[in-house]
Design a protein around this nucleic acid. Structure first.
Lengths: 165, 165
DNA sequence: CCGTTGCGTTAGTCGAACTAACGATGTACA
DNA sequence: TGTACATCGTTAGTTCGACTAACGCAACGG
């Protein structure tokens, strides 16, 4: 029975405050921080007309050398359906080169160009700055630990529960 | 045998391994862990025919009492456009009640029902279990610290950079 | 030789976040 | 008092990223 007086007065606090049980849930924290981080990075890269994907592919190419599109897909986690478009863009800007693999004609071999490397350095710098902003409230040691904890979590889940690639 | 000198040989490592600079980026770690966590929670709740949103609204109602749809929107972060549908579902199942506010005829006052509270407890239990799975590789103390770090990050970004409500 | 597997590609689904606009109502104040 | 402006619930629609389905082609294995 809500006929008691004051049924409909909401405490001014309750207007803005998010419930504690909600705020503490790691899943919610993760999802919100990830959203924030995504926006930050996406906007930061958009300012130089780049995409998360571009960075991932270029970094993968520089670190492990040329590879087929499928290989890049697996390394970066970008679906091979989407990889096509990403590589079209990168190739269109002269950041990578796409050539048929002489040894296996199903494959394209993707190679990073000098220009690609140059952009990669620039993006690396930009991302460093963005991460400074992202992790601003944490001390250096805390940032390290944060990254370590996240890494352990992710490793656990990617190595253990590999669903069905 | 690749007859061309070294042109197309990719080190077997490079097939699977994600570049280090990529793997260490907090933004990437966050985004992947968040995806994992989202899947886990979404699937877990789907098993009892519930949604993340349902939980958020019910928790908010129990913790801060009844409120208008707009209020719930602000508390939970669910857009008020989407709130309509969520409340339709909740009301359809008798988990909340929607009544016109006698004091302000623009508003509906949303109240949680006894049944709603019962479901909330059940969902709380389910989420606890899912979080155990999510944070499995971390020791209790580490889980706490992880949550603390995340909380500080999120607080920083939500209180400082409030874009345009 | 043939069934299976991997490749690049096109097209399209799905769900979540978000915007735009609306009618009805409430508030502030000249 | 009137009138400009803000807020509420709601409908509709956009955007974008993750993901599926299916294809034609080439390579591999028995």
């Amino acid at each position: 029975m809500t006929s008691t007086p004051g049924a409909v007065d909401m405490p001014e606090d309750g207007e803005l405050k998010t419930p504690d049980r909600l705020r503490r849930r790691a899943s919610r924290l993760l999802s919100h921080m990830s959203a924030k981080s995504d926006r930050l990075v996406t906007e930061g890269l958009a300012r130089v007309d780049a995409h998360r994907w571009h960075y991932a592919v270029l970094a993968s190419l520089e670190e492990y050398g040329p590879g087929s599109q499928a290989t890049l897909s697996r390394r970066t986690g970008i679906y091979r359906s989407d990889m096509v478009g990403v590589l079209n863009e990168l190739a269109g800007r002269g950041l990578v080169e796409r050539a048929p693999d002489p040894g296996d004609r199903r494959r394209n071999v993707i190679t990073i160009t000098a220009q690609g490397r140059r952009l990669l350095r620039r993006l690396d710098k930009i991302l460093d700055d963005l991460h400074d902003e992202l992790l601003a409230p944490l001390l250096p040691a805390e940032r390290d630990q944060f990254v370590r904890l996240l890494t352990r979590l992710l490793d656990h889940h990617t190595h253990q529960a590999r669903p069905a690639p």
